[in-house]
């Protein structure tokens, strides 16, 4: 049960130790203390371990995560779990901009709010935000699911390719080529599964679904300058 105190050790030392773990390591429970908003904590892990980070983290925390379960007890800066491949990242507080950006897989759970551009260019990640999300979220989203229990800011899903955006609260406005879609049984099952995994007990029927209108897929002369 290694404990790394970032008031004493450097982030590079922590990440190096995490990167050297074989996938069948016995050191499966890590605790990180005193993160003090430092950047790039616990990035690039490639092992099925658990990491508990006690406090607020800076940019890109848990980025590129593969298989690890990372829990952060505080808030997170820009780019939380960016380009995550798999595993679970759970944040107890609020996330800054671009949480889950370009994520390819895994589950990101944000207990608080996420600010602008949550899930920007998401490529398969599942994101559950228990609070609200900021403007331009799911910009150019490609695949995956974004579940928001609170409200969504301006221009939700602008230039979206494909991805399911489930919102329970108000949507301030939709971005270009994003539209509301019927919540069918298939989508309801996906949503219910994600709510269950995130430990949220609200009915799937209380959400609205948004997705791509697919009008930007092909060149249209009216969109040319």
């Amino acid at each position: 049960m290694p404990v790394v105190d970032l008031a004493v050790s450097r982030v590079r030392e922590l990440n190096k130790a995490l990167h050297q773990l074989p996938r069948n390591t016995n050191e499966t429970h890590w605790t990180v203390q005193n993160p003090a908003g430092q950047h790039s904590i616990a990035v690039g892990i490639d092992a099925p371990i658990e990491v508990m980070i006690e406090g607020h983290v800076g940019y890109y925390c848990a980025g590129m995560n593969k298989d690890a379960q990372i829990t952060i007890s505080g808030n997170a800066g820009v780019g939380l779990a960016e380009n995550m491949m798999s595993g679970v990242v759970r944040l107890a507080g609020d996330a800054s901009q671009a949480a889950g950006a370009t994520g390819r897989g895994g589950l990101l759970i944000i207990e608080g709010n996420a600010s602008a551009r949550c899930g920007i260019s998401m490529k398969g990640i599942d994101i559950v935000v228990k609070g609200s999300i900021g403007p331009m979220s799911a910009f150019m989203a490609q695949t995956g699911n974004l579940v928001v229990l609170g409200d969504a800011g301006e221009a939700l899903g602008d230039s979206i390719y494909e991805a399911r955006l489930f919102v329970r609260g108000e949507v301030k406005s939709l971005g270009a080529d994003c539209e509301e879609k019927p919540l069918g049984s298939e989508e309801r099952a996906i949503l219910a599964g994600l709510l269950d995994r995130a430990g949220v007990d609200v009915p799937a029927d209380s959400f609205r679904l948004f997705g791509s209108a697919r009008r930007l897929y092909h060149f249209h002369v009216d969109n040319a300058y």
């Binding site: 003090a36 908003g37 607020h56 808030n75 800066g77 800054s96 600010s115």
Partner: peptide, 18 residues
């Protein structure tokens, strides 16, 4: 960045927001 605030007394109990 939050790092700049982490040096302040009582920051653990502050209301942090963006």
């Amino acid at each position: 960045e939050y790092r700049a605030l982490a040096v302040l007394p009582g920051i653990e109990k502050a209301r942090i927001f963006e």
